[in-house]
Structures are given as structure tokens and as C-alpha cells.
Design a protein around this nucleic acid. Structure first.
Lengths: 335, 335
DNA sequence: GCTACTGATTAGAGCGCGCTAATCGGGTAC
DNA sequence: GTACCCGATTAGCGCGCTCTAATCAGTAGC
């Protein structure tokens, strides 16, 4: 099983306790001893045992992360920023790979808890708020990409209303009035996004119209066919994410409609797909890079003081305008 | 820190040892006691402490996974299959988030080893073979998506030669003769892919031609511009992956060339992007689903017997023909 | 000389659990 | 009743480490 502090101590002819002090970078160790210990450790190829360490210290250096769907690059981005922030704070990450099924999530979180993670970061969990409450009631938890009114659970999420204002501001400025939203489904994140759309439309004095969907390419296709039957046809589509947007665009084009000339399309995520030369989708950039640092900050705060009041951090978005939006065809811009 | 077996034992009025037996599903526990213990555990909300458990048992249930680039959905797919297989075998995964930089990788692997993982699964590591050797020399390790001739290190990878034969077989059958390859760069995986292309071309009696690239959209664009200057212009392009393919396609189209009519394009990964309605890229599907089970199988074998001889498992690929390949324009199919 | 004090080192008690070996209790055989 | 056995239960050590408290050496002060 590899050498232990005991072995290192023996080789360096010092006590085991001293080895422990050196490993923990204690200041009160003479330079002479420190060097002797480090050399012995080096020679033996000693590696600290993270288990024994956390067992003894009870101060864990691991944050448990639940990812709802690993194959979704959006989560990859969030995770990546989380990893950077966690590393900077001296934490490891233990990841539970989600499978897009709500019931498995509970088991995954349980596994994380068995590893006595210092805190939980849950990326867009699908489980119900009730389950969430029972699982996280006694652990520092931060929700990412999903809101939930749970006491003691911090939240980092996109500012959906601000995002919607950004999108609709852009579209109305171009002259659009008839703008539909293809939703991401019945889950909480999707509902928040739809709600942002609805509010922003109302603020603009426009009538909102939603088509139920999902965060998938297929959902975009289905919704697009629906849109084609609408009369009068909307002049702009706000899709729940890029995948949906691109799915819809495919259908539009195969029906002889040109994007953006006949129909403007906006997505969310500013994903790789949106950036493709072939696509150049106007998309909402959710500032995913800020998610990680915000989440880690909130988590550390709560680990430090579990009783601190609930914080909700809404990350501002930006709109990346590309080539799928332009003024509507037969309509001049109305001031 | 939550209740321990001690607490459960006290509540159930039995010994701590019995609680331990119940938790490990020992057969020699009376049904009566078992129920009493389980009920007490339930009431207290007891969760086993994974650290203490592995400290005591020395049999770890965790596999360490190094992912080279989390934001790449290809790795998401591999990871996902790995997760499924690991779970089926009763293992947890501890993930180290790669950052596409070779020197950080070593530190990440070290972290994994500190967690005394039972084995390592490295997804397309970028580090040199030398580093790889020194890090993995004494731990069960499986390399995924990259080959390396290291004793005691198993490998699961795409069968690049078979894949190249598949692609080139398809293209030559359509009538193509002048087929170039945009590589993924100087890393090992890319070189293996290029090597497969070269060999398969030679087998077909064709002259190979490679353009240096990277696994990115931009690299595809750069290569495409290069291709446009070639005379005679190739009739087909085999890109290192889908991203490269799509990058190239964008440039082709913006130069008035139509895919596939003027130029056939094939990618690798059969990614979400390839499947988009707007893209419909013919692509090599690398059977990523099989990676995980193969890797876990090899790893368990080696954990069981570290001295077992090195195994290299090459996963067969399939070609998903979509709409970016067709017979070359001004050339009839030659028998 | 003795005490007081400072900084370096060590002894030793756990952390929560697994596991071996010892013990217990209640049949069965005679 | 005694001897024996076998399944059920428990005592207690050790995993590799952290951390408090104790010890040790060395210096200063008087």
C-alpha cells in the first residue's frame, strides 16, 4: 500500500509526529529536520493518504459535484469553471455523473455524502424541491443553474429576466413584434427562462406565446414545424438553448425559409455549436466562467458558517449577436 | 459530523461490531437484529463514512479518472460509459478535471493517487510516455483513447486502421481518389489516426496527403483555406474530428463550394454536431459506449492480478453516412 | 546554582470503520 | 447432568493520519 509516515519517520530517524508536521508545512520545524524528512519522503516515494488525513482532521478538502448530464457541453463549461475555482481554494472535486434521470440523482448525492464532502454543488438537478430539501438539509449546498427556495441553500444562476430583456430588446430594436419562445420543458430551469421571457414581453407591451419543448435538437424541430403552421407567422424565435435553435433552423431551411431573412432565431448558451461558421447563431452567453467562482465562494462561506442567510447570485448574461438575427422582412422599423 | 456506527449501536442496544456486520450485509446476522439495527440507522440518518471504511478495509471502491478536456463532449461520452460500467462493478469515480495542459496532468494524477484510488483511467492524456511511465508504474492503469507501449498498462482505444479503411473504403467506392487528411496535431492520438489513414491509403494504392491541424474548429478553417489553394483540388477531406470537418465546411461554403457536390467531407466522433439537421456530417462513430466497459474490465483484471500481461483492446468503429459524402463531380466511378 | 521561558520534538489519544478471534447461548447427543 | 457444537454476538486491535499536551534542550536572568 505504499509507505506511510511511520516509514518516513524511521528512515529520517525522527518521530512520526514530526513527519506529520513537515507534511502540513508547520512553521515550527527546524530547517535541518524539514530537509531530512522531505528527503526521506522523496526517497521512499511517500504520498499522503487522503483518507487517513480527512478521517483524522475532519476538515475535508473535497466538494461533491452532481452533474445532471455529462455529455452536455454546457455542463462541461460550468464544471470547468468550478474546477478552477475549487483548485484555487485548495479543494478537490468528487463528481457524480448524472444521467438525466431524477430518481438516480438521490443515490448519487448519497454517495457524495458518504465521502463526507465538505459541501455539495448541484448542477441543474432535476429532482423535486422536496427531495432536494431532505438531501441537503444538513449539508452546505449550492445550487447552480436552478433556483429553489430552500433555507440554507445558496443559489448561483443565470439572471433570466435580464437575459430575456437583452434578447427581446435586441429583437424589438430590430423591429420584431411577434416573437415566440420555445421552452425547455417543465423543469425548473426551463420554467424560469420562460418566465423571464413572459415578463420581459409584458414590459414591452407585447403578447407572449410559448411552445412547449425540451433542451434538445429534436424539440427544436418539432417546435419549428408547429411554428410553420402559425398564421400570422412569427418573425422571431427565442429558443430555450442553442440545440433547440439549431434544430428549428434546420427545419426552417428545409422548408425554404431563410434565417435570418424570413425568421430571426436566438439561442441560449453561446455554445460551440452557436459559434460554428456554418451556424453563427445569435446566442445568450451565460457567463458560465463566473458560476464556478461564485459557487465556490458561497460554499466556503456556508461551510464556514452554516447558519448564514441564504444568498442568491444571479449572473449577468451578455448577448452575442451573430448572423441569425436581422430586421423582419416586410416591415419597417417602427420607432 | 453525523452519526457513527457507535451511535447506531447504542440506539439499537447492540455492539458496534454487529452494526458493522449489518452494514456489510453479512449473512450471519439474525433477521431480528438486522431489522433493529437498520431501523436505528434510519432513525439517526446514519451514513457510512467512506474514508474510514477504506482506511480500515484497504479495499477501495474508487477509480480515478483523468479527463483531458471536460468541455469536449467526446470525453463526456466516454466518461458516461465509464461511469455506467464502474457503477455496475460497484465502483465510484473520482474525477480530475483536465485542462488541456500536459504539465498540470501530473499534479492531477498525483491527487488521484493520494486518494488511494484502486485504479486509474486516463482519457487521452497529453503527457509524455516517460511521465506516464513514472506516474503509473506501480498502479493499475488503463489508458483510453491513447496508445503507449508501457508494460503493465492496458489500453482501450479506437481501431484507427479499421476506421480509416472504413472511411476510405466508402470514399473510394464513391469514386474518390484524391483524398486528403487534416490531422489533429502532433499528439499521440492524432498521430495514430493519421497513421491509420496513411496505411489504408497505401493499401488502396493511393497517394496520401496530410495537412497539419488540431482538434478544433479553427484548425479546420485554416486547413480548408490551404485546401482551396491546392491544384488539382482534392475531391474528399478526412478531418481529424467533427469540429475540424465543420470548420472546413464553413470555409468551403463561404467560397462558393458546395458540400458534398464539390467536395466530400468526413469527420470523426459522430458527435451531436455531426447529427445536426443543418450539418448532417458523415462521421466515424467510435463506439464510445464500449470504451467504458472494456476499460473497467481491464482495470478490474489488473487490480486483481497486477502482473497480468498488457492488453490492448481496439474498439471497432462504424461509419455513419449522412449527407456530406457523394461521388466526386466530374468523374465517373472507375471500377 | 535555580527558575523561567522559548522553540523544537515527541508521546499518545483518537477519527470511524473492518476484521480476526474470542465469547456467548441454546440446542443435541449421550 | 455433562460434553459438544454451531450460529450469533462482541471485544478489541489496527488502518494512517491529525492534533493536543507533554517533554526536551537551550538560553536568559538573577
Amino acid at each position: 500500500m505504499g509507505p506511510t509516515q511511520e516509514d518516513v519517520a524511521k528512515r529520517a530517524r525522527v518521530s512520526r509526529a514530526l513527519v506529520s508536521l513537515v507534511m502540513r508545512d508547520s512553521p515550527n520545524v527546524s530547517e535541518q529536520r524539514r530537509r531530512r524528512v522531505l528527503r526521506a519522503a522523496e526517497e521512499l516515494g511517500y504520498r499522503p493518504n487522503a483518507f487517513a488525513r480527512s478521517l483524522a482532521s475532519k476538515r475535508l478538502h473535497t466538494i461533491g459535484v452532481l452533474i445532471n448530464d455529462v455529455t452536455n457541453p454546457y455542463f462541461g463549461g460550468v464544471y470547468s469553471s468550478l474546477a478552477t475555482a475549487a483548485e484555487a481554494a485548495g479543494f478537490d472535486l468528487l463528481v457524480a455523473p448524472g444521467t438525466r434521470s431524477a430518481d438516480k440523482e438521490a443515490a448519487l448525492v448519497r454517495t457524495l455524502l458518504e465521502h463526507r464532502v465538505a459541501g455539495l454543488a448541484l448542477l441543474s438537478p432535476l429532482m423535486t424541491t422536496k427531495e432536494l430539501r431532505s438531501l441537503t438539509s444538513s449539508w452546505p449546498t449550492v445550487l447552480i443553474g436552478r433556483d429553489a427556495a430552500l433555507p440554507g441553500v445558496d443559489v448561483v444562476t443565470t439572471d433570466e429576466l435580464q437575459a430575456a430583456r437583452l434578447v427581446l430588446g435586441h429583437l424589438t430594436e430590430l423591429g420584431h413584434r411577434h416573437i415566440v419562445h420555445v421552452t425547455g420543458g417543465a423543469n425548473r430551469s426551463a420554467r424560469d427562462r420562460a418566465s423571464g421571457y413572459r415578463t420581459a414581453m409584458r414590459e414591452l407591451g407585447l403578447e407572449s406565446r410559448e411552445l412547449p419543448g425540451a433542451f434538445s435538437h429534436e424539440a427544436g424541430q418539432v417546435a419549428a414545424r408547429e411554428i410553420l403552421t402559425m398564421a400570422p407567422r412569427p418573425t422571431a424565435v427565442v429558443a430555450a438553448n442553442d440545440l433547440v435553435a439549431v434544430g428549428a433552423m434546420g427545419v426552417f431551411e428545409s422548408h425554404g425559409l431563410r434565417v435570418p431573412d424570413d425568421l430571426s432565431v436566438v439561442g441560449y448558451d453561446d455554445s460551440q455549436i452557436a459559434r460554428l461558421d456554418l451556424v453563427q447563431l445569435t446566442s445568450v452567453c451565460q457567463g458560465v466562467d463566473h458560476f464556478g467562482s461564485a459557487a465556490v465562494r458561497l460554499l466556503l462561506r456556508r461551510i464556514d458558517d452554516p447558519e448564514t442567510s441564504r444568498a442568491v447570485e444571479r449572473i449577468e448574461t451578455t448577448l452575442v449577436v451573430r448572423r441569425t438575427t436581422c430586421p423582419p422582412r416586410s416591415s419597417s422599423v417602427v420607432a
